[in-house]
Write a protein that binds this DNA or RNA. Structure first.
Lengths: 238, 238
DNA sequence: ATAAACTATATCGTATACAATTATTACTAT
DNA sequence: ATAGTAATAATTGTATACGATATAGTTTAT
């Protein structure tokens, strides 16, 4: 295939970015949590320089916000931002679905089904992180072969945030079966060439994230704050 | 309006990013040209640290590419990449036009006409850079009030590259009047609520960039290389 | 003359040190 | 007790130094 593999080790900055990104997505770092360059550097066993580079990269992906002389904070969307996020996500995913289907629908369906299989396995094993990862992979399957690198980049602009929020919403088992069933329906529609129908289901599926975010993430937080009995007080962005 | 203005000076890294970005857009730095962190730092009178930060930011905007241990290079799109760039640009601009029109069409038309006026003035004054800037402002007017920050971010993913290429295409005076006339038609259609028509003109207008890029940028370069009489040999990415 | 090996230079990647800014705490006066 | 103030700690922003790697030029052997 390729003439010769690159064979270059990733830089510490890239490794740090990947590691921190993972920590945010899996929930190891909480939404809104303050990040100290010093502590991150110590924790990762490297100096602050590559950590800073990683943080600027993560900032571009919207996973953190940095305030001058104050610190960096894990992103922490309001409900309105969540709505915009979903809206944008839907635009990009939908367009990518059409492009991808037009280019190579066999491959598209294959990848969708592969992700679906991984998801089933993760659910059966009770692996929540694996489930979330497979969910992300399923939706990203629309992008991988859409043929426009800029559409992919546009999706990367939000995919991290989507993944991070998704992890936090993997709660109520009653939603599991529903979500799984919607995925199946989407795949079935795409495989059958019923893209308009797939679009409809996809829209409903994607837009569910907003109310669920409010119920599962925002509401408990407000309740805790009202009762002043909130857990450990964390430094947050304002 | 705002409770209190931030009143914080921008960091050296931000200043450097803006300065280098400007140099790329105005043509002070050539497409494909090699950039040395050391030389940039000396030229800007700062250390390498903020320069590196600026370069990572510019890389995210697609204005440069960085190769490990080799250097950074100003972006230098192939014709295919240029086509994808235009395609994506059209998708985003069109969608933003509809959203913006629905939200506040009065303001949209105002901003379009303001940019148009700036453009006329720049052309009359023979200010090519000013012309290009006004052209960019006109198209960005669709974005500024579309109400979705992520659409704006998606546009920023490519707007720098678009601006940089535009500067290089400001050549043949015969295209000037045509481009100006198209802008007028777009504004007229938007003001009249004829968005479908505006979309059609916008599509033609945006897509012209690809063939013009081939003719004005790519073709002369190939000719020079064939004759081996090319100007000063510059280090380029491979 | 050509190709291979070696040296020198340029460039980036990372660590560390210091300065500037912000937040927190302790303290004092009312 | 509360508001204001000064001292302290924590944090980022920038500069500098050093090592690692890639490129270019030079030398040498065939």
């Amino acid at each position: 295939m390729h003439p010769l593999t690159p064979l270059r080790g990733p830089s510490l900055a890239a490794l740090a970015a990947a590691r921190i990104r993972d920590a945010i997505i899996t929930g190891e770092l909480a939404l809104g949590e303050a990040l100290s360059e010093d502590r991150l550097a110590s924790a990762l066993g490297i100096s602050r320089t590559p950590v800073r580079e990683a943080l600027t990269a993560l900032q571009m992906q919207g996973l953190i916000t940095t305030q001058p002389q104050r610190g960096s904070f894990v992103f922490d969307p309001t409900e309105e931002e969540m709505a915009e996020l979903c809206e944008f996500r839907l635009v990009v995913e939908t367009r990518a679905m059409w492009l991808s289907h037009a280019r190579d629908r066999i491959r598209l369906v294959e990848e969708l089904e592969a992700a679906q299989a991984r998801m089933d396995a993760a659910i059966a094993a009770g692996d929540r992180i694996g489930w979330a990862a497979a969910d992300a992979a399923l939706h990203e399957a629309f992008l991988t072969n859409c043929g426009n690198q800029f559409l992919v980049q546009a999706y990367q602009l939000i995919s991290g945030r989507i993944s991070a929020v998704r992890t936090r919403l993997l709660g109520p088992p009653d939603n599991q079966s529903r979500s799984v069933e919607e995925h199946r329906e989407i795949i079935r529609a795409v495989a059958g060439g019923q893209l308009m129908q797939a679009e409809t289901i996809l829209a409903a599926h994607v837009m569910q994230m907003r109310p669920r975010y409010r119920t599962i993430v925002l509401a408990p937080r407000l309740a805790a704050e009202a009762g002043r009995a909130g857990g450990p007080r964390v430094r947050r962005a304002r």
